[in-house]
């Protein structure tokens, strides 16, 4: 961990201003991913701005009938919130399938959205990695890639996004609310928030320097039956091989989002449209254009099988 200076911001505007004007500055919230990476010098900020004390830890209903989730709401608290449990159960389920109780007590809503990949080549600073060190190459493409992305990736990077929460957020069409250094605020649809790697895998989202997430807004509840299914190599405390978030509407419609398979939470309109045709059709639509490696090609099948399991359970319930 490189030396850094540390400060606590007094307001969100001030935090954003300071971050934009201080070279090497990063915000720190839960720290569960940032400090992990700083110890390995994958992240080397020279200044940390602690945003834990800015009152961003509230969950409030908004006038449009949706929910505004403060950026600093801990994963545990978001999952346990009564409104979230009732109206956005897929989000509770996704959060609860991630990490461990200890980590969820610390990790935050905004931090989770910005969680970086678990690609093992990203994590070993002696290995080539275009995300960590642009231009150094991708160690994973022809290496150990079993856990990595099968779609949305590029020849420069096949890292996966490891978040569960973000998959549910994507399903719910959440939007990310920010404040910038100049005090301006904007709301970014989550669909537009994460970026695919292309030739610039080190650019992972659309936030500008200094831009601070203040909250995530969930639209009005969708109703329907909410499910989040995470398939992994052990029963708990592991990242997804594949995860599927789904809401099955009373009208027979459904929407789906996928985790563990792409550089961002994966959602395809055509997959939702294929719901009536069954799980294999949904999988085919969702994975159109997939380019897996030999080691992770099984994920295509696993997406279909996971969907099949969801459909089977839905039928069993109805």
């Amino acid at each position: 961990m490189r030396p850094f200076t540390y400060s606590r911001a007094a307001s969100v505007e001030e935090a954003a201003r300071a971050a934009a004007s201080t070279p090497g500055a990063r915000f720190i919230a839960g720290g569960t991913n940032l400090l992990d990476l700083m110890k390995l010098q994958i992240e080397t900020p020279t200044h940390l701005i602690d945003v834990n004390h800015l009152g961003l830890d509230r969950i409030e209903k908004n006038p449009e009938g949706g929910l505004r989730v403060g950026a600093l709401v801990r994963n545990t608290d978001l999952a346990a919130d009564q409104t979230v449990r009732r109206d956005y159960a897929v989000l509770s389920r996704a959060l609860l399938s991630g990490a461990s109780g200890q980590l969820r007590n610390k990790a935050t809503t905004a931090g989770n959205l910005l969680q970086r990949t678990r690609c093992p080549y990203f994590y070993d600073t002696r290995m080539p990695c275009n995300k960590r060190q642009p231009g150094s190459g991708c160690g994973a493409l022809k290496g150990v890639s079993r856990s990595l992305a099968i779609i949305g990736a590029s020849d420069a990077c096949i890292a996966q996004n490891p978040s569960d929460m973000a998959v549910a957020m994507r399903l719910l069409d959440a939007s990310v609310d920010t404040v910038s250094a100049d005090g301006s605020r904007r709301s970014i649809p989550i669909a537009d928030f994460h970026l695919l790697p292309g030739d610039t895998p080190h650019v992972e989202h659309v936030l500008k320097p200094g831009e601070l997430i203040t909250s995530v807004t969930l639209p009005r509840p969708l109703g329907g039956a909410h499910v989040y299914r995470k398939v992994r190599d052990r029963a708990s405390y592991a990242f997804a091989l594949v995860s599927v978030a789904a809401v099955f509407g009373k009208d027979g419609g459904a929407r789906f989002a996928f985790g563990g398979i792409a550089p961002k939470p994966w959602r395809v309109d055509a997959a939702d449209a294929a719901a009536a045709s069954g799980p294999r059709a949904v999988a085919d639509a969702a994975l159109a254009g997939a380019r897996p490696t030999a080691q992770n090609a099984f994920k295509q099948d696993l997406v279909a099988k996971t969907l099949a399991s969801l459909f089977r359970q839905k039928e069993a319930r109805s």
Binding site: R118, P120, Y121, Y123, D124, M127, G139, G143, V144, S147, D233, R234, A235, S236, Y237, A238, F239
Partner: peptide, 19 residues
């Protein structure tokens, strides 16, 4: 490269309570 790639406890999985 000649190394064990999953060289931490997040990637080298051992059973947890739930298993």
């Amino acid at each position: 490269f000649g190394f064990f790639v999953n060289h931490d406890m997040a990637e080298y999985l051992v059973p947890v309570h739930a298993d």
